[in-house]
Amino acid sequence: MSDPEKVFPTGLTLSEAEELHSQLVDGTRIFGVISALAHVLVAVTTPWLG
């Protein structure tokens, strides 16, 4: 725990934590786009709103 760069409690350094976070953000974006596309396709096939 002497390394000042380490982020408690994961034991990752700042840049490592940032990289994991960026993967998380990218993943959320990709899954978001995919689910939006899936919803649109379902909506045009069997409209459930109005």
């Binding site: 995919i34 596309l37 899936a38 379902v42 096939t45 409209p47």
Partner: peptide
Amino acid sequence: AVMPFALLVLSGYMD
């Protein structure tokens, strides 16, 4: 994940 819906749209299913 989107493929089944895309295929149903492709085949002109329902609306």
